[in-house]
């Protein structure tokens, strides 16, 4: 099992590092821009583009899925399907925790640096302990639903082993991962994002859920499309 996870990690290490770098770069760019402008106020963390912390799961799924049959060789080995599935899910969870942890750490460091260099500018959208706890609770709330759908997908794959069925399973999984952020937002009272009061932010306050959900889904599909353009064939 550990060897399967290690293999997945070795394969996706570059992509995960890239994911962290992209989001930290966005935050850094926004901070630099605001620091160079003669205005005070708060800067949004680059992580707002994820909609919620669970928005990671979408791109992560895409990363884990691979391209054209990549990883299919695992099915040719003397490993049970359950072991392969569990290996991949565990890898996903581990990768999720790792990427989230690195992003949190990166944001905290940037936030600290901003405080050090400027009294008038602050970084918002940086998660605190309470926000992470809330997200984690929601994550565990949505897990039974996810597991049910994952089991359903496996059952479907066993029943109808065909290209169309596999396509349906993938579509189903994508929808699940797209819906998880939506459920997260519906169930979380104190979301990770602190929104300051500007004209745009007032709009976000009124239509926040809808906006973030749409943004999340859009970003998910965009990330998927960007990462593996050919995957659009499956939808």
């Amino acid at each position: 099992m550990i060897d399967i996870i290690k293999l997945h990690l070795r394969n996706k290490a570059h992509s995960l590092a890239l994911l962290v770098l992209v989001f930290l770069t966005i935050t850094l760019l926004l901070v630099t821009l605001r620091l160079t402008l003669p205005r005070s106020g708060s800067v949004k963390s680059g992580m707002i583009f994820l909609g919620s912390w669970f928005g990671f799961l979408g791109p992560l799924l895409v990363l884990a899925r691979g391209k054209n049959g990549e990883g299919k060789f695992l099915s040719r080995l003397p490993l049970s399907r359950f072991k392969i599935f569990l290996g991949k899910v565990t890898f996903l969870i581990f990768a999720y925790v790792l990427v989230t942890g690195l992003l949190c750490a990166g944001n905290w460091i940037i936030s600290g640096l901003v405080k050090l260099f400027s009294n008038s500018v602050s970084l918002s959208g940086v998660p605190n302990g309470q926000a992470i706890l809330n997200d984690a609770i929601t994550f565990f709330k949505t897990i039974p639903f996810f597991l049910f759908l994952a089991a359903l997908s496996l059952w479907l794959q066993k029943r109808i082993s065909s290209n169309s069925a596999n396509g349906l399973v993938v579509l189903g999984l994508v929808l699940i991962f797209g819906l998880i952020p939506f459920f997260t937002i519906l169930t979380i009272q104190h979301h990770s994002f602190t929104i300051s009061s500007t004209g745009v932010v007032n709009f976000l306050k009124s239509y926040g859920t809808l906006f973030v959900t749409t943004l999340n889904l859009a970003l998910f599909f965009a990330a998927m499309g960007l990462y593996r353009l050919r995957h659009f064939r499956n939808f």
Partner: peptide, 23 residues
């Protein structure tokens, strides 16, 4: 569902596209 038990004794040469590229 149970083929993996036999795959200790059955091996194959799959397509190179199935391999993880960074491993």
């Amino acid at each position: 569902g149970n083929t993996h038990r036999f795959l200790q004794k059955i091996t194959s040469v799959p397509s190179p596209t199935e391999m993880f590229p960074t491993v």
